[in-house]
Write a protein that binds this DNA or RNA. Structure first.
Lengths: 339, 339
DNA sequence: CTGAAAGCGCTTACAG
DNA sequence: CTGAAAGCGCTTACAG
């Protein structure tokens, strides 16, 4: 790589000190009361030499890297890819750059990523925390490293977060299924304790309870994140083949719905006649399904934007208190719920 | 943020110089012949103080940031999100971190991103170049900044790239349509001059020519990237309503297919009976379409991995000559082509 | 075997 | 109005 031109090169060419050059190029001539003529000479030389400041050096001096670390479960997942994009855009508006990493819902990977990014001096984090990563979050707190959680958070830990109201969204979705005439409603969720999943289960359960539809056996099936394909087949079969079988299934995430629909197709159940379906989050796939899915539309763009705003506020110390934001989702009703 | 512990802090606590600490923590005691006892003391103190090296300072000194800049059209696009993921994984294996940005196929944005990332001292770039960004690529060349292009490249410009054989893939796809009995085949592509699109058009044209199916009017329709929804509707209608109408459409990308299928649905054409369809790249959506799409399966994982490997070779100077890699795609035949 | 010193590219308080 | 100097956190050639 070619040797880059530095302040020193400009200073030499102009016959002044690097200090002068620094003042001029950062538009601080006034406080330093630099002469107009020399300032314009410096600027010209900088331009001619195609000077590019070394942001690493700047960061080292200032202690601010203007970089945000983004940790999601999987950047190739549509949901997180969309969030990443809004975070990128919002960060850029504020002159921040984003470094990302995928944790695969694995706390060790997540910890690895946090370490690496701390060493790279990110100014703060936006994290969709994995299960069992409480200590990592507490570590960030203890180090006073700014961060905001998205999608999930830990109720027991003081922190900023931006999430959607999963309880409300889930309640509404299930209520919709009830209103469209379904009385045996199963739910496919993940086998984990993350708050967003728990809240979705709670919304489901409460909606059933409020309508006297709770059965003696739980109809919530839990799938292992690391074994989705097999687990989901087993669980859906149980829901469909038990007596009495369910006539509707509520999927807790779009990935689950995607896998679940394949099983349902394989079993030749027709949606919504044999079985009604509702799920969380949109997906291109759901638009093209023969029976377009009714889904909970989470406000991804707002989540991303709000997370960046809060984080930058915290980084710049405008607001040191943790802030919690909960945004409502909207139920988009289509054919799959038999409306 | 808490004050971080530095080499100096450890040096003070151990009563030695920072130089010693640096040698020990970087496992270079041998060349510096550091005493075993003092080395272990230093290590212990570092551990107790939870020392985290400042990679910014390291980079400034070494001139290597161990960071890769990734520029794609849109990180929220499934195709690029998948590539980003494989690049992330491969980079991490080599102890590199990736900073990303979306150009939105806009050369100004792309130039912006390149500047910012250069200022942040990335060691190299992986870029899916936009139309009219030739000068940017030449600039990187002139500065000897390592980079490798993916998905597209500029035939006139010397550079490393990893792409798929778009001509072959396209030829095969269209040949398949011909073999399944279609004789009026339209193509929906983008209105641009990027090589991957041109090659796809060339493959299409050649396949028709080899089978004496070229019509006097071009059946290649070009859609403006910034106005997909409207443009595609107009163009598909032209293909379908002209005399004689087409009986098959080949979509040059998955985004085009996604939009196109919506139009076809709206017009109530049944696939594959009224119209056969083949497209580039997979998509969850295509699996769930009532008539699953026949598509060109590009080897995204290999493209990502290979790009990282070549880039790192170039960064570490193992291989200075540009390398061009072309990988074959595979046609996945399903129902939409009427096989 | 160990340390003082220079330097990576910047900024900024200080002195003139 | 301008410059010398210190320092951000690190590495490494050099001197002892």
């Amino acid at each position: 790589m070619k040797k880059k031109v530095s302040l020193k090169d400009i200073a030499q060419a102009a016959g002044v000190s690097t200090a002068l050059v620094s003042y001029v190029l950062n538009n601080k001539e006034k406080e330093a009361r630099v002469g107009k003529e020399i300032a314009s000479v410096i600027r010209e030389i900088a331009k001619k030499l195609d000077y590019q400041p070394n942001l690493l050096a700047k960061s080292l001096k200032s202690g601010k890297s203007h970089t945000i670390g983004l940790i999601v479960a999987d950047i190739s997942n549509q949901f997180f890819a969309n969030i990443a994009r809004t975070i990128e855009d919002e960060a850029k508006k504020n002159n921040y750059t984003v470094i990302f990493g995928s944790s695969d819902e694995n706390p060790e990977k997540s910890w690895d990523l946090i370490s690496v990014l701390i060493n790279r001096q990110v100014d703060g984090f936006i994290i969709a925390p994995t299960e069992n990563s409480e200590r990592q979050i507490e570590y960030l707190n203890s180090q006073n490293i700014p961060f905001v959680l998205i999608d999930r958070y830990f109720p027991g830990i003081q922190s900023s977060y931006v999430a959607t109201d999963n309880y409300q969204a889930s309640y509404e979705a299930v209520l919709h299924l009830i209103k469209t005439g379904h009385d045996k409603i199963g739910m496919i969720a993940y086998k984990n304790n993350l708050v967003h999943i728990k809240e979705r289960k709670r919304g489901y359960t409460q909606a059933l309870a409020d309508n006297n539809l709770l059965s003696e056996v739980s109809l919530i099936k839990e799938v292992d994140f690391n074994n989705i394909t097999e687990d989901i087949e087993i669980n859906i079969k149980e829901l469909l083949f038990n007596k009495p079988p369910v006539n509707a299934i509520f999927f807790a995430t779009n990935t689950l719905a995607l896998h679940g629909l394949k099983v349902i197709n394989k079993l030749n159940y027709k949606i919504p006649d044999d079985l009604a379906v509702v799920c969380f989050d949109e997906g291109d796939a759901f638009d093209f399904f023969y029976s377009p899915l009714t889904f909970v539309d989470q406000p991804i763009v707002e989540v991303g934007k709000e997370a960046v705003r809060i984080l930058i506020d915290q980084i710049t110390n405008k607001n040191i208190n943790p802030r919690q934001v909960s945004i409502s989702s909207r139920l988009v009703i289509r054919k799959s719920s038999g409306a």
